[in-house]
């Protein structure tokens, strides 16, 4: 009987090891350890043994049963591992294949520049003011110290709708309108918008373009405030290392007037093709608001002063992003527009 037990043990263990999956293994379990299995038969046969042999044999059978169960569990674990491994292997994917596209558009580069400037100045207490693209001659010219027949009107060739109505040639009429509306109160505004000039469209000219202007009116506003403000602007838009230089200039609506250059962001000032070897790039114009402009808007120019500045948004964008043809901004080629996706610090 002992021998039979030994043979049985070897047989079971062999069968267990031969199983390839949990189903086969379960069949083996049922066949040998089940109620109708040979081990149960063996135990049933114990009655025939002597009382001395019975405990010995019982221990042997239990030992064998334990061993078989152990091996069985071990093998079950192995089979499971094997099955998981097979599943994982079959489920492997090529992770380099492209993901499912999530469509995402982006701002037009001109809007991007405008919003960047708006945000900078809102942080300094400016409001964003807007006005009509079709303006009255009064707000576009006369309120800005450009009476009819003024030679400086030559500087800006105008699209007229009628003798008194025109497409605004700059965003300055928004300044005039805002001052008038404020009725003598302090003003801090930034005015973005579309403007129009009689120009034939080419790489550097556009009959429609964008400007953004700033205006501060209050008691005690000084030219040094303009300079400090512009310095902040230049550093935000073109980098902390930028230096500015102001040059005297002329605009009918400011006195004194300035033009601002920034140190070239490409060469740092040593001279390159971007700055035309001068080390400086002309960026904007500005000045102290002309007393005639203040008076026309109802301010007492002996008490209140102001500064204003303005720039072409296309120019800023062209400089900032290295765009070489102004027409790109208006043809809306997706290969152009999609280049302005990523964020900037």
């Amino acid at each position: 009987m002992e021998k039979r037990l030994q043979e049985l043990k070897e047989e079971v263990l062999q069968k267990i090891k031969a199983t390839l999956n949990s189903k086969e293994l379960n069949e083996v379990r049922v066949a040998y350890l089940g109620k109708k299995g040979p081990i149960t038969d063996l135990l049933k046969g114990m009655g025939k043994l002597s009382p001395e042999e019975r405990p010995k044999m019982g221990a042997l059978v239990n030992e064998m049963r334990q061993k078989v169960t152990e091996v069985l569990e071990e093998h079950a674990e192995k089979l499971e591992q094997q099955a998981i491994a097979e599943q994982l292997a079959s489920e492997a994917i090529d992770v380099t294949l492209p993901g499912r596209t999530v469509r995402i558009g982006n701002r037009h580069p001109l809007s991007r520049v405008v919003e960047e400037i708006e945000d900078l100045f809102m942080g300094m207490g400016y409001e964003v003011a807007e006005g009509p693209e079709v303006e009255r001659d009064y707000y576009n010219f006369e309120a800005l110290n450009l009476p009819k027949g003024h030679p400086a009107r030559d500087m800006q060739d105008t699209f007229y709708i009628s003798e008194e109505i025109l497409l605004r040639t700059h965003t300055s009429p928004v300044q005039a309108r805002t001052m008038e509306k404020k009725e003598g109160a302090n003003v801090r505004i930034i005015c973005p918008g579309k403007v129009f000039r009689r120009d034939s469209d080419d790489a550097t000219h556009s009959h429609q373009f964008m400007q953004i202007e700033g205006l501060v009116v209050a008691e005690g506003i000084r030219m040094s405030d303009l300079k400090g403000t512009l310095d902040l602007f230049a550093k935000k838009m073109f980098g902390q290392d930028r230096e500015i230089r102001l040059r005297p200039s002329f605009f009918p609506f400011t006195e004194p007037s300035v033009e601002m250059d920034i140190s070239c962001f490409k060469c740092g000032g040593s001279g390159c093709n971007v700055c035309k070897q001068t080390g400086w790039i002309e960026v904007l114009g500005g000045g102290m608001v002309h007393p005639n402009v203040l008076e026309k808007a109802g301010y007492d120019s002996t008490k209140v002063t102001g500064f204003a500045f303005g720039m072409g948004v296309e120019r800023i964008a062209m400089l900032k992003y290295g765009v070489d043809d102004i027409r790109h901004f208006y043809t809306n080629d997706v290969r152009f527009l999609s280049q302005f996706q990523e964020t900037e610090a």
């Binding site: 207490g125 801090r188 209050a218 405030d225 230089r245 040059r247």
Partner: peptide, 17 residues
Amino acid sequence: YDQIPMTLPQGATQIGK
């Protein structure tokens, strides 16, 4: 113009928004 110092406007300000 180089000699002009750099300052920022003084006085009461509104919230820019």
